[in-house]
């Protein structure tokens, strides 16, 4: 009985999604994922490659699992994340942009038949930003300054996701390298929090927050009077966004590599901050932002 019940449910579910022969373009559910995914989709469609839209599918584990299972074909991933996919988070190699990309490309090709295409010259890594009205009087510009300032009793309250607070390469490695420790009363932990939430908390001083976890390419930073503190000891792994595609699909459409290369080469840190800001702050749909950028840079013809 139960089996037949399950089977009928599954069959019914099957009717909802149709079989596909197109290139399934996906992305993570965050803002940048939306923008980069829409760019990939627009470029492929423009070159006459049919695509299926599975953008903003879910978090990193969901999207990664879907790629490996062959449910999606291409999505933008960050070089630094390969450290976690291959359980190599301890390796200092991930802090060097070139080496990190080469290693990610090599490992994924060998183990999963997944190809990393040309990355963007932008590092969307974790960082800490302090309210400018706090940072300037205190003379805090780098994380070394920040560590010293906090240890000397500087009043800080950092809004961050629980991932940032707990995962070894994030806050704990900052604390170890720059010699400071944040107690529970100096942290506001937003479980599953996006940087949008942490930046907003710091910008508005919600619950006394004056510092925020940020990503390098956050579109909101410029709008929020926050100063991003320089990672002067290079503690963080490099997170360059690059399209990753299943080798099987790339073999079928080898032109994808050459199509996406000029697009990603144009995506500097400032460009991504600007594009993300248009989506997040101004509320323009990611598809329009992507289209506008591609057209303005003559990447569609």
């Amino acid at each position: 009985m139960i089996r037949s019940v399950l089977l009928s449910a599954v069959t019914a579910a099957a009717l909802a999604t149709s079989a596909h022969a197109q290139v399934v373009v996906s992305s993570k559910i965050d803002t940048e994922g939306g923008v980069l995914g829409e760019m990939i989709r627009a470029v492929l469609e423009n070159a006459g490659i049919e695509t299926e839209n599975r953008l903003q599918l879910g978090g990193t584990p969901v999207v990664r699992q879907a790629l490996l299972a062959g449910e999606i074909d291409i999505y933008p991933e960050y070089t630094g994340n390969a450290a976690f996919f291959f359980n190599r988070a301890e390796d200092p190699l991930w802090k060097d942009a070139g080496a990190a990309y080469a290693e990610a490309k090599k490992l994924d090709q060998e183990e999963n038949d997944v190809v990393w295409l040309t990355p963007a010259p932008a590092n969307n890594t974790w960082g800490i930003a302090l309210r400018t009205d706090v940072a300037e009087p205190a003379g805090v510009r780098t994380l070394s300054d920040f560590g010293k300032w906090v240890s000397d009793g500087g009043e800080v309250k950092l809004a961050a996701s629980s991932e940032f607070v707990n995962s070894a390469p994030a806050l704990p490695s900052f604390q170890a390298a720059y010699g400071f420790t944040l107690g529970a009363d100096q942290l506001i932990v937003l479980s599953g929090g996006d940087t949008a939430a942490t930046i907003q908390a710091a910008a508005n001083g919600t619950s006394g927050a004056n510092a925020a976890m940020v990503y390098g390419t956050d579109g909101q930073i410029a709008f929020s009077d926050l100063t991003v503190l320089e990672d002067d000891k290079q503690v963080q792994p490099v997170y360059q966004p690059a399209p990753v595609v299943r080798a099987e699909v790339l073999a079928e459409h080898p032109e994808i590599e050459g199509l996406l290369q000029p697009v990603f080469e144009k995506l500097t840190l400032e460009t991504l901050q600007d594009l993300n800001g248009k989506v997040q702050v101004e509320g323009i749909p990611a598809a329009d932002v992507a289209q506008e950028f591609l057209t303005a840079n003559d990447l569609l013809n």
Binding site: L6, A9, V10, T11, A12, A13, A14, L15, A16, T17, S18, A19, R54, L57, G58, V62, Q65, A66, A69, E71
Partner: peptide
Amino acid sequence: GWVAANLPGAAALGIRGIGMAPAFV
């Protein structure tokens, strides 16, 4: 995901580990 990978025809019917199928079930 296992069903999709191992049952012939299941994936073609749209049964996936991710997406509509698990939510529906």
